[in-house]
Design a protein around this nucleic acid. Structure first.
Lengths: 221, 221
DNA sequence: TAGCTAACGTACTAGTTCGTACATTGTGAG
DNA sequence: CTCACAATGTACGAACTAGTACGTTAGCTA
């Protein structure tokens, strides 16, 4: 069982602050996502790490700050993905659909992130409020949406009265619900929203929904 | 502080099994919704009740079963509201919009229920699975949606390729996200999705979205 | 190479928390 | 009227859990 990936040291004791911190964050992410904030066990996190509980308190200060650090890193990942977004060359309709698909894919691929966000909401977003990195440093995706919306509205193609934040909420709600509420929805209605066989169906459904909303013919008011 | 609603007994000891159970469920609902399953404290629930912790174990067996009972009652409330739904006399478009609005209102008025469902999803819906009352006893709202959809699709008004479960997921996702993710969304984007001043805006947005999706002109495929 | 400090490990504690053993009392049935 | 049982209260314990006091070592620097 004793892995020998690392060069065998007398005591197996190697000093690498960055690696230790990263490993703690990896394991903590899993543990918090698995059991929630109060359900997560600091001892369990430590046990699944190559280091000890002492190091968690040494580097992060406590359970609360550890969870905050986990959240910060999780949000950093999604921000990076959003910055990779390259839709400026597409027409507004294709750009919005592409944006929705990227969001859809990202949510599906990061269920742990979804769980962390759900947990943070149960706790009133107090860790985000306590974080300097996360406070009001707004998402790059909003700028992208703003530009597409402006373009589509100017050409008369988009008729809906929404701004970027509203549209982001609309897209996110569908993607988030599908992953976050997978278990209760499946148990109650007998349908797995994350069934791979249904993936394309729901992916298209999201795009159709958003485009239909934006381009619907509306009575003048 | 000592309320004297009840006729003062020597020891204040009154026997009323139904009332005791209901009171435990009321307080437990608040406590679980407040702090999650592991964050909730059995002692705290007992303290905020006119009875003692002993009674929780006497009537419910344990913390897990108590949470299951809380969930069962919460779902019973929503089922009842769904049965009150009276939209059969409306045309398909108006019926769907009305249905969406009722769902919207219900989610807004029952944030504790939303939190309980989020918590249950963190725990993989294991309590629903353990419940006899909740297992696959499908929701009355699905029948209503089915009938409206059939009517709208038959008349050619509805063009979308969805069934009742899909449409229910679409409507629920928007309503659920708005309440469940209110805190993180507000902290990150500076917009309160449950702001009363924005209520009509989001209520209309949901209806517009669903109707636009259902009635959009589609290329034959 | 001496020594200083960041990085790390061990062992423990104080407080909490679920659950229960045991005692007591109200109340409807016969 | 009494008796049996449902309903209730008290006090306690065993296990867990976040956090810490104290000791050790690696490895860079002067």
């Amino acid at each position: 069982m004793t892995s020998v990936e690392e060069p065998a040291r007398p005591n197996g004791r190697i000093r690498d602050a960055a690696r230790t911190q990263a490993e703690i964050l990896d394991v903590a992410t899993q543990e918090f996502a698995r059991a929630g904030f109060d359900g997560a066990r600091v001892d369990e996190i430590a046990a699944r790490t190559r280091t000890t509980k002492r190091m968690i308190y040494y580097y992060f200060g406590g359970k609360e700050q550890l969870f905050t650090a986990v959240l910060e890193r999780a949000y950093a990942v999604i921000r990076e993905a959003e910055q990779q977004l390259d839709v400026e060359h597409l027409d507004p309709v294709a750009a919005i659909r592409r944006l929705a698909e990227v969001t859809f894919d990202h949510h599906e691929q990061h269920p742990d992130f979804i769980r962390l966000v759900s947990i943070e909401n149960i706790h009133g977003a107090e860790h985000i409020a306590a974080s300097e990195k996360l406070g009001r440093l707004s998402s790059p995706v909003l700028d992208v949406i703003s530009r597409i919306l402006a373009s589509g509205q100017q050409s008369g193609l988009f008729t809906a009265d929404v701004d970027a934040v509203d549209l982001h909420a609309m897209i996110s709600s569908f993607c988030f619900f599908r992953v976050a509420n997978r278990h209760t929805f499946g148990a109650l209605f007998g349908r797995d929203l994350v069934d791979p066989a249904q993936r394309e169906h729901y992916r298209a459904m999201l795009g159709d929904m958003v485009i239909a909303y934006l381009t619907a013919e509306r009575a003048a008011d």
